[in-house]
């Protein structure tokens, strides 16, 4: 992989050194809080349950895609956002949990039906699989875990993000009626982000 540094990237990196990651956690609370407020006051339309469920799911996918963008951005532009990646990953996981909570508590409502859906409906099985893959990542997203398992094993564990996010996109494509453009664009984008990683690996192996 040929590293490039766009003009201005270094300058931007210099500024970002002064910007900590922790505000991301605070900002992350705002969209769900806004959805809840809107849902309670009619701002989400006549079907607020689905609107909230879908908004949270899409938000989760978007934030998780952002975590996949960090490395290519550094490689192709020189912009270094790595210190924000953990916060983005955890926020994405937080949104997935909220998405699941709305689905269970407000939409399906019965635990027995939730279980039936997971077992019988492939797109829900896939979504749930993506969630399960994210759990070890969320648990180990702290410095202590890196020290405990060692950076190599930790890195391996966090490669689970790739299948998890891919499954998330498949879940999105599959739940729509017919083939629709929006989820297909997400899927295509994610596949591209994964393919460039495979390509990097291949080149490293050759070199």
């Amino acid at each position: 992989m040929a590293k490039t540094t766009l003009p201005g990237a270094q300058k931007l990196n210099g500024w970002l050194r002064k910007v900590p990651a922790w505000p991301i956690y605070l900002i992350a609370v705002l969209p769900p809080a806004w959805y809840l407020y809107q849902g309670l006051t009619g701002g989400l339309g006549v079907d607020p349950v689905k609107a909230m469920e879908h908004a949270l799911g899409l938000l989760a996918l978007q934030v998780l895609v952002a975590t996949l963008l960090v490395t290519p951005l550094r490689t192709y532009t020189g912009l270094n956002l790595i210190k924000y990646r953990r916060a983005l990953g955890l926020v994405g996981f937080f949104y997935v949990v909220l998405h699941l909570t709305v689905w269970w508590v407000l939409d399906v409502q019965l635990l027995s039906e939730v279980w039936k859906d997971i077992v019988k409906r492939p797109y829900i099985t896939i979504g749930m699989g993506a969630f399960l893959l994210l759990i070890p990542l969320a648990i180990t997203s702290n410095n202590r875990s890196i020290r405990k398992v060692g950076p190599l094993v930790w890195k391996r564990i966090h490669m689970l993000a790739y299948p998890a996010i891919l499954l998330g996109a498949v879940h999105f494509v599959w739940l729509r009626k017919g083939f629709q453009l929006e989820p297909l664009l997400y899927l295509a984008g994610i596949i591209l982000l994964l393919v460039i990683r495979i390509e990097w690996k291949r080149r490293r192996a050759v070199a």
């Binding site: 309670l40 006549v46 079907d47 607020p48 349950v49 407000l106 939409d107 399906v108 409502q109």
Partner: peptide, 12 residues
């Protein structure tokens, strides 16, 4: 089914 118009906490 989810009846539309029942708000955020509508029962199925």
């Amino acid at each position: 089914e989810r009846p539309i118009g029942g708000g955020l906490f509508a029962k199925r």
